[in-house]
Computed example of a mutant assay.
Amino acid sequence: MARPSAVCLVLLALLAVGEAAGWGHEYAYCKNEHCRIVKKDCPHTCRHSCKVDCETCKSVCHCDKPGGVCQDPRFVGGDGVTFYFHGRQNRDFCLVTDPNLHINGHFIGKRGDNMTRDFTWVQSIGVLFDDRQLYVGAMKTGVWEDANDRVSLAVDGEPIYLPQFAGATWRSDSSPQITITRTRDTNAVDVEVEGRLKITAVVVPITQRESMIHNYEITEEDCFAHLDMGFKFYSLTDSVSGVLGQTYARNYMSRAKIGARMPVLGGEREFAASGLFATDCVASRFVGRMGREGEESKSSGMEYANMECASGGVDGTGVVCKR
């Protein structure tokens, strides 16, 4: 009998470690009259953050659709183009800025040995519109347990607590109405601001597998829990900017090197903010409630709201979109 090669032995060892670490696929559900009750494996590119499309009854990655902000952090712009924006750990950056909508992201991360940049992830977001503030974040976590809810929510500085079952919902009494709904028992919510935007947010950890592959050196003291998100915008102007927001402007031309395996977008100075709810980034367009009165034209970002996208490359580094 032929002896297994060294490569085979390494692969077998990795598989054994993976089974011990729980690398298997997670699931998503859909409950409606069309799909009834459907349980689907999440695709390997978004094991923790997929959902079931209740129209097609198939599992999909919101990270592969326009408005996706996931992983390290990987963006899918309103134009369907995938790029990375690394930022810096423990800093805040403007993701979207428009006359009456402003979204900052707080980046966490660490500097690897012999690295010239930080590994970073989006730990929380601060959303401003009118004179309101909305917070969605991932709590710092040591050893990850799926059954432990690590979502943190607040509206105008007041914490929001939802019962831990899928479908639990909180609604504001104000206009525009804010609706927050659990999409799983723990660690996943949809947040919608009537007429403005919808956010799909899932708290996910850095797994042992990811740490091993990318040499993140994650320890049991901190699994770097962060947000995988999908944004859908209902009303943007042509002046929209921000790391993600600029890609929804009608005249936007991507500055990322599209042919690269990891096309990286710069602009740290342009998009850096002094705090999670600060609107002082150089690119800021935000003026608050008064901004609604000055709106003249809607962004072509509305054209991208219903685009269908799927991974078009290895490990999801490319995205193919069609209307």
Rank of each mutant, 00 (worst) to 15 (best):
G266V: 04
E158W: 10
P66A: 11
Y304D: 03
Q133T: 15
F231G: 07
S300C: 14
P159G: 06
V240I: 02
V203K: 12
G109M: 06
C50N: 10
Q123G: 09
E194N: 00
C8S: 03
T181F: 10
V17P: 02
C35F: 06
C94R: 05
R117F: 07
D315C: 13
F271R: 00
K40I: 08
P66R: 00
M212P: 00
H25P: 15
V60K: 00
N215Y: 09
V52M: 04
C42S: 08
C61V: 04
P163C: 03
L101K: 11
A260C: 06
A13E: 08
D130H: 00
H102N: 13
T141Q: 11
C57D: 10
S235G: 00
E296N: 05
H226E: 11
P66V: 09
N32K: 09
V10I: 11
T247V: 00
S300R: 15
D149C: 06
F93L: 11
A138W: 11
F165K: 04
A138C: 10
A188G: 08
I178L: 07
I37C: 12
K140A: 05
R150Q: 11
M139K: 14
S175W: 07
I108G: 02
A166G: 13
C70K: 08
D72K: 11
D131K: 14
F119D: 02
A28M: 14
A225M: 03
A272R: 06
S175K: 13
F85G: 07
V69L: 15
K39E: 15
E33Q: 12
V38I: 14
G242S: 05
K39L: 12
R171D: 14
E192I: 01
V155N: 12
T200K: 04
V76Y: 03
G230Q: 01
A188Q: 04
R255Y: 03
T179G: 11
C281E: 03
T45C: 01
G24P: 06
C63E: 01
L276F: 14
D98S: 07
F119Y: 12
G242N: 07
D113C: 08
A260R: 02
R269I: 06
I37H: 12
R3I: 06
R182G: 03
S300T: 10
V243R: 04
L197Y: 02
R292D: 06
D79G: 03
V193Y: 02
C50T: 06
H102P: 12
L153P: 14
R91D: 08
A147Y: 07
F277Y: 10
V7L: 05
F286I: 12
F93Y: 15
P263L: 10
V191I: 10
V282D: 00
F286N: 01
R111P: 02
M262F: 09
V204S: 15
F85E: 10
G87A: 14
R255K: 07
G109K: 15
D79V: 10
T97H: 07
N306R: 11
N32M: 15
L276R: 03
A188F: 00
I178N: 15
G105N: 09
C223V: 13
V203F: 08
